[in-house]
Design a protein around this nucleic acid. Structure first.
Lengths: 252, 252
DNA sequence: ATTCCAGTCCTAATTAATGGGAAAAAGGCG
DNA sequence: CGCCTTTTTCCCATTAATTAGGACTGGAAT
């Protein structure tokens, strides 16, 4: 337990305190959460604020600052996979008329690296940077499936949370599903995170067979009937193959 | 020139080195740019990497990491203005069928805090976090117009860059325009950043008459004829007024 | 085999961060 | 309007943590 970690770590940790459930924090809270005395905390805050990483709100609280907005754009776009995949995703979106997602494993979550939203009023919405738990939805499970089976539980927040009645919460059942996903090379899920949403996902492999990302199409279940899923799956596979090929030549 | 900067600053500065023109950097470059010896630099890099702020590429370079993607979502969304404005922006987009932007002044640039893209194939595209110079396009000039005239040049990268033949590059002419913008309370620009794009912008004021953001609608010039601009302007004004009202009651 | 780098590790010296508490703003409330 | 509370900044001696120089490792290329 490194109570007094390096300054660098501490400052970054301050940023990490912020998430969707805690968009704003008081200096007092920050101080307590990172375990540093008030004066020290204020020093961190000031540095962060001077550089635009944090900003003060109207109510004696702080929130993430405008600088992070800019990074946002860069971070994803510069990903090799993201950059390469985007045009194929646009094409997929046109052909399926549903939302297309590129997800990646990071820090125990599935992170949306890139997305193209469906050109229809009723659609699945997703933003770049949005994170999802790994045990639900095809876009997440496709990532989980290619982790060595032993380490799977290290990535999961046990016990498994149920978002809908259809979320798989039994670890063994999940593992069985993962094996099946590996066998068939794709994953289809229905209503595991949001009731009424269906996703189809395929893996994207890089060098040495390492999984680099998951590509998926998600739409309202009523539009995703069996033949639509079938059709989507074919398109997904073609796109994944094309992306992999380009990856291999670029990323050499 | 603070040769002996704090650790905290240094680590953050490492992140700031990355921008669109330099999406990847070698350890060597980072070391030189922040003026720290190799071993120290590597320590920074490691800390940043451990926390996901940086990641290694395939070619001995580093780029911004996946963690920043997540921040992206939070940073803008939690802005009071952004959150409040979004629904009105959606409405504006529906009515005008053009791209709607919410911009904000930060660090000598106009930053796009929120945006809703037009539901048409030919449209102005803009992303959250995208930055623009302050001297061109209505969405930028509207921000510049409400800075005290003396300080205007502090915010501008002189000499003024021309993006198109229509970009204003003469400081005095720009100032004259700014005065006019203040007088009439809105700004219309045509082809100043991208030839063929027309923007209409209005200011959004917060408490004590402070400018908090700029609201704008941008579309291809061929669709934005005089009557469309007129129509858009009216909608923009209504939206701005509504946003200001809500801001005042919330942000109290 | 040899050379060249990227990246890590080690250590003594000293710099630069720490944190306790005072003081000063900034609000809130009667 | 002035008093009280809370937030934020400032100060400074202490000391712990960062620094930086260079050795070391390991992989890739020639």
């Amino acid at each position: 337990m490194s109570q007094s970690s390096s300054t660098a770590e501490n400052v970054l940790d301050v940023l990490l305190l912020f998430d969707a459930s805690r968009p704003e924090l008081t200096a007092e809270q920050i101080s307590r959460l990172i375990g540093a005395p008030r004066s020290t905390t204020y020093r961190y805050i000031r540095t962060l604020r001077d550089k635009g990483f944090l900003e003060a709100t109207a109510h004696d609280t702080f929130r993430l600052g405008p600088r992070l907005l800019q990074f946002a754009r860069l971070a994803g776009r510069q990903e090799d996979v993201g950059r390469i995949a985007l045009p194929f995703m646009e094409e997929l979106c046109q052909k399926t008329r549903e939302t297309v997602l590129l997800t990646r494993l990071f820090d125990g979550h599935a992170v949306c690296v890139e997305r193209v939203e469906a050109p229809q009023a009723v659609r699945i919405t997703f933003e770049r940077g949005q994170i999802q738990p790994l045990h639900a939805d095809a876009s997440s499970k496709i990532l989980l499936a290619y982790i060595s089976e032993k380490r799977v539980e290290d990535y999961l927040p046990l016990p498994l949370n149920a978002f809908t009645p259809d979320t798989v919460t039994d670890l063994d059942e999940l593992k069985t599903q993962l094996r099946q996903i590996r066998r068939q090379g794709y994953c289809v899920s229905e209503g595991e995170v949001d009731a009424g949403a269906t996703s189809v996902a395929v893996p994207i492999f890089g060098r040495r067979g390492r999984l680099v990302a998951g590509l998926s199409v998600a739409g309202p279940t009523y539009r995703m009937d069996e033949s639509a899923v079938e059709h989507t799956l074919g398109l997904l596979r073609d796109a994944a193959a094309a992306i992999e090929e380009e990856l291999a030549s670029t990323n050499l």
